[in-house]
Design a protein around this nucleic acid. Sequence first.
DNA 1: GGAAGAGGAGAACGGTCGTTCTCCAACGCC
DNA 2: GGCGTTGGAGAACGACCGTTCTCCTCTTCC
Lengths: 175, 175
Amino acid sequence: MDDEEARNRLLDAAEELFYRHGIQAVGMDRIRTASGVPLKRLYRLYPAKESLVSAYLERRDRRWTASLRASVAGAAEPVPAVFDWLARWFCEPGFRGCAFLNAYGELGVAAPEVVRVHKAELHALLAELVPAGAPPALADQLLILVEGATTVAALSPGPEPARRAREVAELLLRQ
Amino acid sequence: MDDEEARNRLLDAAEELFYRHGIQAVGMDRIRTASGVPLKRLYRLYPAKESLVSAYLERRDRRWTASLRASVAGAAEPVPAVFDWLARWFCEPGFRGCAFLNAYGELGVAAPEVVRVHKAELHALLAELVPAGAPPALADQLLILVEGATTVAALSPGPEPARRAREVAELLLRQ
DNA sequence: GGAAGAGGAGAACGGTCGTTCTCCAACGCC
DNA sequence: GGCGTTGGAGAACGACCGTTCTCCTCTTCC
């Protein structure tokens, strides 16, 4: 097992455990057990828990954003496509809301920078999708719909919040 | 200091510390110091940290819901009044999003029951406010707007998310 | 084959957690 | 005043945390 595979295993274990149970509830020893990577190597690759947490969120941010962009890129109607993508996300087993918001709620000001970066990226992505002549507040309103659907789905998973938000978004686009 | 005042001091300290720093980050000793209530009495009134956490959230739920209901009760347009109330909440110093969602994100399935109860109450309150002839999905959509505005404001406090959500809600009501 | 180094397994360390216990001062009752 | 009870202050306890260290087993190079 080379360092790259060790990193993958560590991030897989960290993502599974941190997302499901929260960050403070999961100890480094549990990540060692789940990943099979010895503690010594873990601390060589990630010198402290904080850096493992940041790496977990950064990898998740890259995958999440890339998946959403890819799904929207080929769509005839990009804004509704965002909510269709959300509906599929909400149905994934183990879905438990936005990992970045969960981390921010748990860690507050101690949350890693990538939380803010992730939300700024999402806002920028939505701003790219709105038609050229639309009012500038439209991207903000779409962001509220995306965050609201995600939050509602966190407590009662399933595609319905995304469908309801999509209806509202289509109404906004027709205005 | 009788038991009732001790309880008030404990819940004040718990609310301030748990909401600001998260639940797991705050130890019982810190609550003792902040409240001035001795550890022995703390454990007589709340036999474990878990019960103090539940009591903190339950008191917050009662105050939050009562304040929102009172503000909406006297309004000519109840639905927009919800968002005006949100705008004032988002401007309070130390605002850091919904305490119940933060607790759920941190504790997951171990979160106390009051988290679910709080969200069900909010949905029921919104369902009372929609006009009689409105489509049944309207309350769900308003809930998405409320949660979305709260979530967006958690990361960048201020009244704007509530104003943007209010515009969308008014558009929904006109449909 | 033997020396030297890397890497793994897991014990150990200091600190902090939730919770309990010890000790003592203050008070009511006779 | 003497005595039993209550409650406060804070030490103590066992468990677990993040992190480091020890020890041993392999591999590699000559």
